[in-house]
Design a binder for these strands. Structure first.
Lengths: 339, 339
DNA sequence: CTGTTAGCGCTTTCAC
DNA sequence: GTGAAAGCGCTAACAG
């Protein structure tokens, strides 16, 4: 059995209050300080955060929910969040939805029951009601990367629509007129990016045949299948916009397997400057998202909400939402040719 | 403020004990059951796991420590562990060392203070003493993928030495005699794999010039730099063994950039059948690790230890260790040619 | 089956 | 600066 504050009371002869005060950085006589420190050392004492949490009503832990932990994008986000959180002395309780909304709902309830001080969510697509248990419990929630269509919440995102329009314009400026988009319309990010694509095409007065819009899931499979479909068209596009990392991978996979060269046979613009881009013989031209900034800003807002709540003695005040929009930039590779 | 068991006592007129019993699946009169359920519904009651944990001395949470959460290998492991844990009604508290032993030590202390019921660790290289706080607190620990040289602990691993020897033999059988290995000797896994390589070469009576052993870190950079060094040799090997996923990526990146084709110009055998293998034009021949089995077995042993501890009323008995060795298999790609 | 009571380990008034 | 005492929300005997 680990030792408790009581044991160190026996050891030192001091009262619980004094010891607790020391533990929380309060002032105690130098003499007592030494006594306590010696006892802690001797007894291997470690604070029981559970007991502390029960009385302070704060766990110094935030819950982080991601739609898929095997997705590199989320791995990087988690890394950045963890780094940032530790600066505040906070830990994180990570839950993984595995792209399943029901599991996500279950996970959120789990976090609420665990009394996390706040939640950062990179949500699965779907109604925002999965977060209801958090709202009922007055736990601040920050959305990251994705937002909900049905409710406005604190969030940190990029301007997906603009970014996708930029990517598309990049192709248009290089003479492309027949451009296809491979996207996922199921979640916020994908839909916005799709819209950005359409914006740019319309602004340029370019037609988009229906079959050039390949909407599906946010996945390697979809990228792979969609690219293969495109390769089968009699009337092939000269360029393709891929709207996320998973799709990038699928697209490149399909191209390589079919021995179709890019940019010679078809140009490609993708999203996210992660691992993959580094390993390809022909580097992808992509829209890069500022991963570290995601973590920093997300944690910053959350900490702000948590202290607001504290100042407001325990209840969240609901007056508007913070919406941080991070800027992106195009990383120029060699996957686009002039036409 | 969320409602408590007391509120539902007021609401129903029942005693705390009865309500608690219901909450924990005990038998109560149907009438009372309805009353309680109605109150729970009405008050949006959620169990306070913190309070529960304080008295039961169990949090139904396990801590999972990984050496680097941005490493896809760990992402997959975490996914599998989470899936498996949820079958037992357990949640996980994930901590990420970012390859920093000091951060890992801090993380373990954090988990201990959070009173997790057990810890699964995919450790950073280094002395096992980072785990001491867990041992002092009598928290069961399961090592996954990697072991320590300085202490024997419960673990689930693959036979790294055998697997690497298999991979090497695969090359030898195809006529390769000049084979280089790119590895990391810093952690358990890397060292074992290096040894397996040496085993196979010695058994075949093949010489390994010193410069054909490129030991460095478990990283993309190392794979990349090492492969570039190899390409600069006057006396080039005809094949290379890459001993982990990160190194695979670096190797392929270097090859592609130098426009050196594999297997035509050099053969490659790698480790781990993850994402990358799917996207390469020429698929890598690799040793595949059973990711799901890692999660299943790791959680299984941990649950066993947790219940043993309970039966032994709260203290871990230390009689030997469980060591699960999972089998691997070679996935044949097209990155090796006969010579 | 139900209620009373004690107590998990800690923080926090409030006197002193 | 220190101590006594109450209490966070819940479970676990023990009586009834």
């Amino acid at each position: 059995m680990p030792s408790t504050i009581k044991d160190i009371k026996e050891e030192t002869g001091l009262s619980l209050a004094t010891i607790s005060k020391y533990l929380n950085g309060g002032n105690v006589l130098p003499r007592n300080k030494e006594l306590i420190e010696a006892a802690i050392e001797k007894l291997d004492y470690q604070v029981n955060e559970i007991a502390r949490g029960l009385v302070t009503n704060s766990t110094r832990t935030v819950g982080v929910s991601v739609f898929d932990i095997t997705d590199v994008f989320n791995g990087v986000i988690l890394h950045e969040i963890g780094l940032e959180l530790s600066k505040y002395g906070y830990g994180m309780l990570i839950v993984d939805a595995g792209n399943d909304p029901e599991r996500e709902a279950k996970n959120i309830r789990f976090l609420v029951n665990k009394k996390v001080d706040g939640i950062i969510s990179v949500p699965v697509a779907g109604p925002s009601s999965v977060l209801d248990p958090a709202f009922v419990a007055d736990i601040p929630v920050i959305l990251m990367d994705r937002q909900y269509k049905d409710r406005s919440l604190d969030s940190v995102v990029i301007n997906n629509r603009e970014a996708a329009a930029d990517a598309t314009r990049y192709l248009i400026e290089r003479g492309h007129k027949k451009i296809a988009v491979i996207c996922s319309k199921g979640e916020y990010t994908g839909l916005e990016r799709y819209r950005g694509f359409v914006d740019a095409m319309e602004d340029a007065g370019l037609e988009v045949p229906k079959e050039f819009i390949l909407a599906g899931s946010h996945s390697i499979e979809h990228g792979y299948n969609a690219m293969n479909r495109i390769l089968g068209f009699k009337n092939r596009p000269t360029a393709v916009v891929s709207t996320n990392y998973g799709i990038n991978i699928g697209v490149v996979m399909a191209l390589n397997e079919a021995k179709v060269n890019y940019p010679e046979d078809i140009s490609v613009v993708g999203f996210d400057n992660l691992m993959l881009s580094k390993v390809l013989k022909t580097k992808l031209t992509v829209v890069e998202q500022p991963m570290e900034r995601f973590g920093q800003k997300g944690v910053e807002i959350l900490m702000q909400r948590i202290s607001e709540k504290k100042e407001n003695n325990g209840s969240l005040k609901k007056e508007g939402h913070i919406n941080i929009i991070l800027s992106t930039r195009m990383i120029i590779g060699a996957s686009v040719k002039n036409v």
